[in-house]
């Protein structure tokens, strides 16, 4: 009987699929007459057709109209976009890393200033361009007992009048005689103010950016025009501040300018930026006026010019 039931399954399947022949249907009827188990499991032919109609009804009721191709394309586009973004980010990171390596390998990333990349800083309300000039600096900083002198080149952009402040020592100096004794510092700043008047209420930063005279960049000038040789001092300019400066622990950078005539003689010294201590500024100008200069030459002809430099004073602590 079990074998009969197993064999009758394909007949039931044929009836379910409406593929059964009359002979097969007759065979199934005969089997059902003697097999209650199959009656319970499958029912009669009408029952089989009723159950199977469920499948057809389900199919006919469906309303889902998918668009797998468009959906797939959209998903592919999303994946592609995600990959593109990922690859772009990685490529940018790699490029940045390579650029940084090249930058550092070329020595352009040095923080120390050089003629190729002078550092611009805002200092005390003024914009200052600083560059190291190793060919000018002495082999060893000139050591005044108790005071370390460093040589740097400081180019000052013209400060706005309100940005120009009297050095601290000027403001705090109680005796007017002190000012009278050092007229050159004050006069130099005032003279610049007269040359570059600024309208009241004008944007100081804009004036700074637009009306600033071009900076004297010796290295660039030499490279661009080989026939021009800029003014340079003969030997080192060594300031000797008054001993009181040591006692006060005076520190700061004095930026100065020396007008040099065509013979190489200093004509006038002015302080472009005070260190804040008259003693230091005075010593710088005295040393600058004592020095001799190789005048600026243009096409082999000497011309009057201005030599600009700066000296930084630092208190040297014992043991350093």
């Amino acid at each position: 009987m079990a074998n009969d039931c197993r064999a009758i399954e394909s007949v039931v399947g044929a009836i379910a699929l409406n593929e059964a022949s009359d002979a097969e249907r007759e065979r199934y009827r005969r089997h059902l007459a003697g097999c209650l188990r199959c009656v319970d499991a499958y029912g009669g032919e009408r029952e089989i057709e009723r159950v199977m109609s469920t499948v057809g009804r389900t199919r006919d009721e469906e309303t889902w109209i998918p668009d797998p191709v468009s959906t797939g394309r959209a998903r592919q586009a999303e994946r592609r976009r995600a990959w593109t973004i990922g690859f772009s980010a990685i490529a940018a990171a790699v490029a940045l890393s390579l650029g940084l390596h090249v930058f550092l390998a070329a020595g352009l990333g040095r923080l120390a200033p050089s003629p190729a990349n002078p550092i611009e800083i805002a200092y005390d309300g003024q914009r200052v361009t600083i560059e190291h000039r190793p060919h000018v600096a002495p082999a060893q900083p000139h050591a005044v007992p108790g005071l370390l002198v460093e040589r740097t080149v400081v180019h000052l952009t013209p400060p706005a009048p309100e940005a120009v402040r009297a050095p601290r020592e000027h403001a705090a100096a109680p005796a007017p005689a002190t000012h009278r004794s050092e007229p050159s510092t004050v006069v130099a700043v005032q003279a610049w103010e007269r040359r570059h008047p600024v309208q009241p209420g004008a944007d100081t930063s804009g004036v700074l950016a637009q009306s600033a005279p071009p900076l004297v960049n010796h290295a660039e000038a030499i490279a661009a025009a080989p026939e021009i040789h800029d003014v340079a001092p003969v030997g080192s300019i060594v300031p000797h501040p008054a001993p009181i400066a040591y006692a006060e622990g005076a520190e700061g950078t004095t930026a100065y300018a020396v007008d040099v005539d065509e013979r190489g003689a200093p004509v006038r010294c002015s302080i472009d930026k005070s260190s804040g201590y008259l003693a230091l500024d005075k010593a710088v100008c005295e040393a600058a006026m004592k020095a001799q200069y190789v005048p600026r030459t243009v096409g082999g002809r000497a011309v009057a010019s201005t030599y600009r430099d700066a000296v930084t004073f630092r208190t040297q602590t014992p043991g350093n």
């Binding site: 399954e9 394909s10 039931v12 399947g13 379910a16 593929e19 499991a41 029912g43 159950v51 469920t54």
Partner: peptide, 19 residues
């Protein structure tokens, strides 16, 4: 084809049981 009919038969039986 017989195997397919057999599978359909068993599937139909399961469906009928659910109903």
């Amino acid at each position: 084809p017989d195997a397919v009919r057999q599978r359909v038969c068993r599937a139909m039986r399961a469906l009928r049981a659910v109903m």
